[in-house]
Design a protein around this nucleic acid. Sequence first.
DNA 1: ATGAAAGCGCTAACAA
DNA 2: TTGTTAGCGCTTTCAT
Lengths: 336, 336
Amino acid sequence: MESVNIKKLAQLLNLSIATVSKALRDSYDISQETKDKVLALAKELNYQPNPHASFLRKQNSKTIAVIIPEIANNYFTLAINGIESVAQEKGYHVIIYLSHEDFHREVAFTKLLHTGRVDGVLISVSSTTTDYTHLHQLQDKGLPIVFFDRVCEHFNTVKVTTDDYQSAYLAASHLIEQGCKRIAHLAISQSLSIGSKRAKGYLQALQDNGITPAASLLIECTNDDEQDVKLIRDLLEQQQPDGIFAAIERYAIAGYELCDLLGLNIPGDVKIISFSNLQTASLLNPSLSTITQPAFEMGREAASMLLKKLEKKNFQLPDESIVIQSKLIARKSTMK
Amino acid sequence: MESVNIKKLAQLLNLSIATVSKALRDSYDISQETKDKVLALAKELNYQPNPHASFLRKQNSKTIAVIIPEIANNYFTLAINGIESVAQEKGYHVIIYLSHEDFHREVAFTKLLHTGRVDGVLISVSSTTTDYTHLHQLQDKGLPIVFFDRVCEHFNTVKVTTDDYQSAYLAASHLIEQGCKRIAHLAISQSLSIGSKRAKGYLQALQDNGITPAASLLIECTNDDEQDVKLIRDLLEQQQPDGIFAAIERYAIAGYELCDLLGLNIPGDVKIISFSNLQTASLLNPSLSTITQPAFEMGREAASMLLKKLEKKNFQLPDESIVIQSKLIARKSTMK
DNA sequence: ATGAAAGCGCTAACAA
DNA sequence: TTGTTAGCGCTTTCAT
């Protein structure tokens, strides 16, 4: 790779390397004339500063890491869109790491970030993460971290979430309003912030409406499709719920498939509502009632905070949650 | 960021920097004893080599760029999964760039890659890209480029595609078999490789079955949802096709929504089949017949070739197409 | 207004 | 077997 570097520009212009460097950053002790010459040549040769060399001096890489559990997931792709929109605007590069819901991979990734590869980290933790020392170690090294969606509550930084408790409460309440009595919750790992909040919202809604929650109706699903199918099938067959509130889209999809298989009518036999960012929710058979998360905005907000920290020397990431509301959209799957 | 570097290790161990460096890469002229000491301390302090400093010497960043038009798209997320699986296995980092179907952004990204930020590029070009000089310039600098899905036919490198022509031919043939006479094609930009191939396959299938293709039934859709809706609506209302073959998922979704709106029955009034990697194709109302692309495998294959080139000094990327077949899955939307 | 030179962390050629 | 040193491309302080 024979690239154009400052040295070459300097040679061609009969200037010193230092002068060229300063001209490129528009330093005020370089004459306009020289600047013009330098800029013109730089443009002509498509000069790009070497980011690695810059890093060594400036200690910044203009790169951020995004660590997420998976990517074939509408929530996360929309969040990435939000993140990328901010990154592109500010000239940052985005490295994507997929933990595949595996704590050990997540730890391995963070280890790779200990030395300058990125300037900051956006993370939504894996469902098997219960220990956050790998992230604390990163933070101790001075790397800013911002959480989104699946956050660590007791971490001194910004955490961008949606109103999981409230939305779950509304989802369960909606099922009750539509006449459901035996409402099941397909929960995601209770060690996740979103898992416990959504479950709590569900439980509270039942209680507030005089329904005693049954342990047999609160199913903690997994990351394994096959196992989830078994769990949900058992639920449908043995517990005969008349309402299902799915904590994530994947569980709702499995629910649809199983109802199909078992000959259960939605919403006649069982009504379903789910946290979901599915574009085709309204085209499903029947259309799926959803709690739609502000995925793009969450990504955007998380990235904005991180980049603000990176760009403004006096700005510290506050220890606070930024909550952006979800929307409940009732469709046919919860119709009376 | 006060990180552990080689200097610090050397000081703590009373060794020279060079010795430590060699011990870390397991050089054979360092004693086992020294190696053990070095490795132990490195592990204890969680030493990570600074990638930027390494780059300056070794001219490799262990990073690849993935440039794609968009990410909220099942094909691309699956492809990224494939790419990431290879990258993770080989210890490479993946930077994602989203061109949002905009040629100028694509060019801007490639400009940023001219100086060592990445070792190689995987790209699926934007639908507004007709000029490939930005990519030739990159290649001229010695950066290996591998295309996938939306390729540039006349580019001297590996191009990973699916059998677009053949699959389109099959899709159109399938509609004919199901009794369709007036078959429309919702085409994607004809300047894209996939756009023209899919259209050609469609046209050939009609001709081979004694149907004269009508220009009014070949609609080139756009990147703008609103405009597409108008185009498809006009098609449905004015041309009354009894079959639609959509080149990409998004057009089929729009078709579903419009049939709903216009009171057209699928598959009674109009049958629909689409290139699509939608997970919920079978849950739509009615379930959608698809040509499902081997997205994961395509990403995996493209990344494998690129990394092979990066890792093996004597391997040159051949000027060839690697074609992985798609599968036609007939569902209710094309039922007789 | 311009240039010389040090140094960021690392590797590798060469010396000891 | 270990150490010294030059240099990757850049920024920045300090001369000139």
